[in-house]
């Protein structure tokens, strides 16, 4: 509990940095924010009006204070296309993005960690070479390209996957919203047909993202397993006659997981970024595609809101990773 409190204190400067950067992106950089916020069709008078309304004619510290006050009250401005507040737009779309990202992460960890362990335990074997190829190819494939290849292959050629248009077939009705995750909500509602349909829609985009995040996880698992397996304490465990299974799983694996958990932070960074591209390819109604649409219409309030939301989400994820790390490693627990 004390560790948690201490860790929470350390994210304060990070959050402060995030707010400053988003403020800089909104107000200070070249270009006319008033024109941005007014939208491309606004005339000079309305731009001036917005400038005063936004307080852009006041000194920077005052603007910053106003910006922080807006953030604190959840005021991120309105989206031009819908006229709705950006915050509520983001909130309704977030579950779709979260479902996709988490689905991809679970999928890629389920494949990457066993693959990395096997590759390290049987170094130089066929599976090791396979791991090498997959990881090198995985980081080289642009996600939007893999997504399109999957669509062509599994939708157009084979017909296995449904059309890449969102989270659910239009003929099916959405289950009552509880978690916002369609798969979970439909399971809770007991509607198996919707579960199947939602999973079918999720499969391709999640696989696309998973293939991308698989590489760094498998690579790091293999590397850290290799270094732990050649470490002195594993030699001691072997010399004490412990079973290979115990040596690999209890002794080596837990130690090897430490760098892998750290890598997850980077993987999340990749995933959240790649998410934007995958959502565009599969017309997935998440916050990424929302931001891209706003970007095309030069509607900047949603874009800024999106950047800020992603940063906050990422900070929270990193916090979770740190806590998990502390659970595995007693050295961190004692003197943080």
């Amino acid at each position: 509990m004390r560790t948690l409190a201490r860790r929470l204190v350390t994210i304060v400067p990070t959050l402060f940095g995030v707010v400053i950067v988003t403020f800089l992106l909104t107000r200070v950089l070249p270009g006319d924010p008033a024109a941005y916020f007014a939208g491309p069709t606004a005339d000079q008078a309305s731009i001036e009006q917005i400038r005063t309304a936004l307080g852009l004619d006041r000194p920077l510290p005052v603007q910053f204070a106003a910006y922080v006050r807006d953030l604190a009250t959840g005021n991120l401005g309105n989206a031009l296309s819908t006229g709705q507040p950006v915050l509520s737009e983001l909130a309704t779309r977030l579950p779709a993005s979260a479902e996709l990202t988490l689905g991809a992460l679970i999928l890629s960890m389920a494949v990457a960690i066993p693959l990395g362990i096997l590759a390290a335990v049987r170094e130089g074997s066929l599976i090791d070479h396979a791991c090498r190829v997959v990881t090198t190819a995985g980081v080289s494939l642009p996600v939007f390209f893999t997504g399109l290849l999957f669509v062509y292959l599994f939708y157009y050629l084979l017909g296995w996957a449904p059309a890449p248009v969102g989270r659910l077939d239009v003929y099916l009705s959405e289950p009552p919203r509880i978690t916002g995750f369609l798969t979970l909500d439909s399971l809770l509602a007991g509607d198996l047909e919707v579960v199947r349909a939602a999973l079918a829609q999720l499969a391709l985009p999640a696989a696309t993202l998973a293939l991308f995040s698989l590489a760094p996880i498998a690579r790091m698992t293999r590397a850290s397993m290799l270094s732990v397996l050649s470490s002195e304490f594993v030699r001691t465990a072997r010399a004490a006659g412990l079973k290979p299974r115990t040596v690999v799983l209890t002794y080596a694996f837990r130690n090897a997981m430490l760098p892998v958990v750290t890598t997850l932070g980077m993987v999340f960074s990749f995933l959240l970024g790649a998410n934007v591209l995958v959502e565009k390819v599969f017309a997935w109604p998440g916050i990424g595609s929302f931001a891209v649409e706003a970007l095309i219409q030069s509607d900047y309030a949603p874009v800024q809101g999106f950047v800020l939301a992603m940063a906050l989400l990422y900070v929270a994820l990193n916090l979770a990773i740190d806590l998990i790390y502390g659970l595995i490693d007693p050295r961190v627990r004692l003197d943080a």
Partner: peptide
């Protein structure tokens, strides 16, 4: 061999701190 190690023949090593699992 693995049955033998630890029960019939044991080893102790240089650098004892490194010879123990750091997180167990």
């Amino acid at each position: 061999m693995s049955d033998l190690r630890g029960r019939e023949i044991s080893m102790i090593f240089q650098n004892p701190r490194m010879a123990l699992n750091p997180i167990r």
